[in-house]
Write a protein that binds this DNA or RNA. Structure first.
Length: 399
DNA sequence: TCTGGGGTCCTAGGACCC
DNA sequence: TCTGGGGTCCTAGGACCC
């Protein structure tokens, strides 16, 4: 039985959030549309191809996007809906092969080696997947096909929008080397600048940089990564997704805040949100991290590793309070606050806390139970509950 | 134009231990 | 007195991805 020479598929939804919005509101079809923050400090999360033709890009401030594209329709993002549609897309992919490695809400690698008996070519599989996603879910997907993950990912980019592209074995370097170095997975703005300083503009240039020089400029891990990918060497297999390493909640305020009580209430609210999501995922974490971004965009983090993994609002808050004290925020205008819990472990493996904490722990577990039955918003700490007669200002697009 | 939110991984320095 | 070496853990910051 003959093997496919290029058994790896990268399936990538085209402007995924926008297409989900169009599924729910067909009047958006054919128009310049973007999904993004609707507050003062919103940015674009996803732009339709009509909007892209005006230069609208992801991560661009909405104001700039509107300036470039008069008539741009900006839709607020509805993350739970995108999650639903994403699950349907993944179901389709898993109906073709069990070897599906999700790498984000809207893209995955598939190993289709096992399908060689049922299809004459790997292109037929890619086409069948694209059509099934279109028929069953209603949105377009592009497919890249190659012998390695990295090449398959580049191929899907080349296939967009709504297409399919295969890089035949043996032609990898001819495809890869003329591309701009910024196309490389792992080369962002900073690394691009560093590489340009070395006179490196294409991936072909990168492949000929002496390793020692590269290592001195970008560090050893990046250098190894870049050097192998530039030669189209990528032995990584398609495998099950990695376990979650951290869960966080953060928010940018539409107007900077500096009052201590407000800061504490916002952080407490984030602790509570993180706790609800930890409970849902049945995990607890050892490290609590506070993130603060000041009005000048300078960003600091303060973290603390606890011997016992934490998961309940009160436990996270206890640590968060200490972190606020350590952050040196007095009198400074703050535009963003965030709380993250990392070094996650399975909640069932967490040893119960010592005697003094038993009662509070029991109460906290009761809260988790109620949340599980009635939803995350059903129980909230008194301090952050809406207070009659007091109008709360909400953070910009934080959700 | 004025810069989101949710993540992952890497690096470097200091503490601590042997 | 004026100074080791290596390993591991923790913390902070930064780059990157979608």
């Amino acid at each position: 039985m003959e093997q496919f020479a290029e058994p790896i598929l990268h399936v990538d939804m085209d402007s995924f959030f926008v297409e989900v919005e169009r599924l729910d509101d067909p009047s958006l079809i054919g128009k310049p549309v973007a999904v993004g923050g609707t507050g003062r400090r919103g940015v674009i999360a996803s732009a339709s191809y009509e909007a892209r033709s005006f230069g609208v890009r992801s991560a661009m401030p909405v104001g700039e996007a509107r300036r470039r594209c008069p008539g741009l329709i900006v839709v607020g993002s509805a993350h739970s809906r995108y999650g639903e549609v994403s699950r349907s897309v993944f179901e389709v992919m898993r109906s073709f092969t069990p070897i599906v490695e999700g790498i984000s809400i809207d893209e995955a690698f598939l190993d289709v080696s096992g399908l060689r008996r049922h299809y004459t070519s790997v292109e037929d599989i890619g086409t069948a997947i694209r059509h099934t996603i279109r028929d069953q879910v209603g949105i377009p997907a592009s497919v890249g096909i190659a012998s390695t993950k990295f090449m398959a990912k580049l191929a899907s980019k080349h296939a967009k929008p709504d297409g399919l592209f295969r890089v035949p074995t043996g032609t990898e370097l001819a495809f890869l080397h003329p591309l701009e170095v910024a196309e490389m997975w792992g080369v962002g703005e900073a690394t691009e600048r560093t590489l340009h300083d070395l006179g490196v503009r294409t991936i072909g240039d990168l492949a000929s940089v002496p390793f020692g020089l590269l290592e001195r400029r970008v560090g050893s891990a990046s250098a190894r990564h870049l050097a192998s990918l530039a030669r189209a060497e990528d032995p990584r297999p398609v495998e099950g997704g990695t376990p979650t390493r951290s869960i966080s909640s953060e928010g940018t305020f539409s107007v900077d805040i500096d009052d201590r009580d407000r800061i504490e209430r916002e952080v407490l609210r984030m602790c509570d949100q993180v706790a609800a999501r930890l409970a849902k995922a049945h995990v607890a974490g050892h490290t609590v991290t506070l993130k603060v971004r000041f009005s000048d965009f300078a960003t600091i983090t303060r973290s603390s590793r606890r011997k016992e993994a934490v998961s309940h609002t009160a436990e996270i808050w206890e640590t968060a309070k200490e972190l606020i004290d350590r952050a040196g925020i007095a009198g400074r205008a703050i535009r963003l606050l965030g709380i993250s819990v990392g070094d996650l472990v399975d909640a069932s493996a967490v040893r119960q806390l010592s005697f003094g904490h038993e009662r509070r722990n029991a109460a906290a577990e009761a809260v988790d139970e109620v949340r599980e039955r009635f939803g995350p918003g059903s129980v909230i700490p008194a301090r952050i509950a809406p207070q009659p007669g007091i109008e709360r200002t909400h953070p910009g697009d934080a959700s």
